[in-house]
Simulated scan of single mutants.
Amino acid sequence: MSPGRRNHAGAAVVAVLALMLALVGCTGRAGGDAATVRIGVGGQPLLAYLPATLADRLGYYKDEGLDVRLEDLQAGSKALQALQGGSVDVVSGYYDHTIQMQAKGRELTSFVNMLRYPSVVLAVSPKASRPINSIADLQGAKVGVTAPGSSTDFFLKYLLVRSGLKADAASVAGIGGGSTAVAAMENGQVDAAVMVDPSFSLLTKRAGADKVRILSDTRNAEGVRDGFGVTTYPASVLYSSKKWLKDNEGTTRKLAKAMTRTLRWIEQHSVEEIADRMPEQYANGDRQVYVDAIAHAKSAYNPDGRVHEDGANEVLTVLSQFQPDVAEAKIELSKTYTNDYLP
């Protein structure tokens, strides 16, 4: 080959390599793994999803070489829709959606379990339109949930069925999980609501604890035993599609490592230290209420990130009681969660 041709061939190789590097930089992929990850959160200020934000605030995603983009989608059902539509890669949502979607023929898999108790509270509004002293009294009542089809909605339907009512015995209203939920309860827009902290703690502070009747509280082990008969019930998790996990095994392991580091950090630090790391606006102007809410939630965070089989089975049992498609489907629980990516 002549010198001119060799120079031309060398220049072509350099150009091809430059193009490949540029493409890797634009797509954020190298060896099939995404360096940029979009995580849809089912209500970022809610304590159920605190670890997703805290991992970012502690710098643990960056430690793993990941560029994580957290997107607050305000409800678990909306985060699920975003995953299905391709606008996020991973969801910080509740585990029960992985079972629900398998019944519809779509495989989603949880790979880190952040919350081992549901940590939701069914409470009566201080301005309810009528006396409500038990779950049975919710017949015909208007009950708030974060959004229809969300895990708070599932929880309400389970409690209604367990109390001998039909799953649709109460009318459901989507009230969000933050300040809108507090306002809906304060103003009597709903008779009761399934709430998540810090919103529930803020409501009790503003209305008075003696004015807010609790019908079910799953923020601790005792409440989970009373409600479900088990000691662990996988709640908020990180989940994604089977395809995304397969295409991004390295990234998934890095996310799992960052999250388990965060869960251990929560276990080893005080509620005040945890509050200090979180965005100030999440306290809704009342830091002490926020600190107290974290204190209620702290034992629910799952330090090892694992889903346990008995807990997964209980979630399936619960969903089967009010979702005919789940009850009739042959659910393979082993496909709805995995502990294989955990460090």
Rank of each mutant, 00 (worst) to 15 (best):
Y233C: 02
Q84H: 13
T317P: 00
T146N: 07
A12R: 15
Y94W: 10
D340I: 09
E309R: 14
A9L: 15
T53G: 09
S216M: 15
D89W: 13
D292H: 04
V68C: 02
G93N: 07
A193S: 11
E273F: 04
I214L: 14
L47Y: 03
K205H: 12
A15V: 13
P234Y: 00
Y94A: 11
F200Q: 00
Y60C: 00
Y301C: 08
D197L: 04
A30V: 15
K205E: 11
A193E: 03
Y341M: 08
A275M: 03
V121E: 00
R106P: 01
T252V: 12
I99M: 11
K166R: 15
L263S: 03
D325Y: 07
R277T: 01
L319S: 08
G164I: 10
K330P: 00
V307L: 14
D210Y: 00
D72P: 01
H269D: 07
A258N: 00
N113M: 04
A52V: 07
S134E: 06
I175F: 07
A300F: 01
A170D: 10
A34G: 05
A235P: 01
K62F: 02
S110P: 07
D89H: 15
K246N: 05
P131H: 14
T317M: 00
T36W: 06
P279H: 06
L156P: 05
Q44I: 09
H296R: 00
P131A: 15
L23K: 06
T260E: 02
Q139D: 12
T36Q: 14
P198F: 07
V190C: 05
A293F: 07
Y95R: 08
Y337V: 06
Y95S: 07
L73R: 11
Y61K: 01
P343Y: 06
L165C: 06
W265Q: 09
E267S: 14
R162H: 04
S201G: 14
T180A: 15
M20E: 11
V145F: 08
S216L: 12
D197K: 02
V271A: 07
G10I: 11
I274R: 02
Q74F: 11
P234V: 11
A300E: 03
K254R: 11
V237K: 01
L203N: 04
L215C: 14
R130W: 04
G40P: 03
D56Y: 03
V315E: 13
R277W: 02
A235I: 00
H97K: 09
A295T: 14
V172Q: 09
L202R: 06
S171W: 04
F322Q: 05
V291W: 00
A123P: 04
I274G: 05
A329H: 06
G76R: 06
M195L: 15
A207M: 00
A283W: 05
A192Q: 12
D292K: 10
A147M: 10
L160W: 10
Y95K: 11
